[in-house]
């Protein structure tokens, strides 16, 4: 069985896409299959970096003017038509999603997107992916080759790169390809680094257990030192100890950080809705009965002040 990875080297997140594919290969395929990677790219100065970060030792390069799915699909089909590949793996980004489905159609194969794991069987591929708005995991058996799979975001914890050297098998220059008549004009605007609580990765939230403005001030420092954005619950906001734009909950920011620590927050429903989508919630509260404790991943029942000071010491010494 053979596999090919398709990656968009024009993307600014190429390296992390490649790492995730490597992790996915490690988790799901191991070394049992041989594979190569097709990389589309447009900037010569990036060429070496792309090769170095390829998730497989064998690399095929295709140079294009810019990533445009209609053109990339046409090139891919010509390139792959007579190769006997069983499995194509695509990245988890927009490009990977689109290409996997459309490419599969053109190749007469089958496709699935957002796939978190696969298992190779005889004449079939078993895949898992979320369904019902991420409430259920659906397992499918694909029976029509080539299987074209776009992996899911966060489908692997392994972010790794291969330590063997890379070998470029082929290089094609498609920059002279006709642009087609579909697009008359285009303008690209790079993403600005989103800021604010809604986009924050790590939030420290002060609740009504924070008793006065001085304690609030200290919490602000702790947040700064640990690299967290500071959030507040409604009782604190209404005391104006922090500006209203720090407010979290139904009347403020609805956040989705990777990590959320609540200090002296009781966890009323109107507040909790604002952190419900956090990846991981740590609650510090003196009241074991507070609803935040049950809604957290891990909790410490104690005075938030002392715990945070201790925590800060640990973090600061471990950074040194």
């Amino acid at each position: 069985m053979k596999y090919t990875v398709i990656l968009n080297g024009c993307s600014s997140s190429f390296i992390s896409q490649a790492e995730e594919i490597s992790g996915f290969l490690w988790d799901n395929i191991g070394k049992s299959m041989e594979g190569d990677t097709v990389i589309f790219y447009s900037e010569d100065e990036k060429r070496e970096e792309l090769i170095e970060n390829s998730p497989t030792a064998f690399v095929r390069l295709i140079k294009i003017t810019r990533y445009q799915p209609e053109n990339v699909l046409a090139i891919l089909k010509d390139l792959e038509l007579n190769r006997e590949v069983d499995l194509y793996l695509f990245s988890r980004d927009f490009a990977g999603n689109e290409l996997s489905v459309r490419f599969a159609y053109r190749m007469g194969g089958s496709s699935l997107v957002s796939v978190s794991k696969i298992e190779i069987g005889k004449g079939m591929l078993t895949c898992c992916r979320p369904a019902y708005s991420n409430n259920m995991e659906a397992k499918f058996t694909l029976r029509k080759k080539p299987y074209c799979i776009a992996i899911a975001q966060g489908s692997t914890d392994h972010k790794l790169t291969l330590d063997t050297s890379r070998q470029v098998l082929s290089e094609v220059d498609m920059t002279n390809m006709s642009k087609g008549t579909f697009i008359k004009e285009y303008e690209f605007k790079g993403e600005e680094e989103a800021s604010g609580l809604e986009h924050s990765k790590f939030i420290l939230i002060a609740g009504r257990g924070v008793k006065d403005n001085k304690k609030m001030e200290r919490l602000r420092e702790v947040a700064k030192k640990t690299g967290a954005e500071l959030g507040i619950s409604r009782p604190v906001a209404m005391k104006a100890w922090a500006p209203m734009n720090r407010l979290i909950g139904v009347s403020g920011a609805m956040t989705k950080p990777e990590l959320c620590i609540t200090a002296g927050v009781s966890g009323a429903a109107a507040f909790f809705a604002g952190i419900e989508k956090s990846k991981y919630i740590i609650a510090i509260n003196t009241d074991e009965e507070a609803s935040i404790v049950k809604s957290s991943d891990v909790a410490i029942i104690d005075d938030y002040e002392i715990v945070l000071e201790e925590l800060l010491k640990i973090i600061e010494t471990s950074e040194k």
Partner: peptide, 13 residues
């Protein structure tokens, strides 16, 4: 539309 790394505005036929 949203594309990887940014926003693309195109005039298309």
């Amino acid at each position: 539309n949203m594309v990887d790394g940014g926003i693309l505005t195109q005039i298309i036929r």
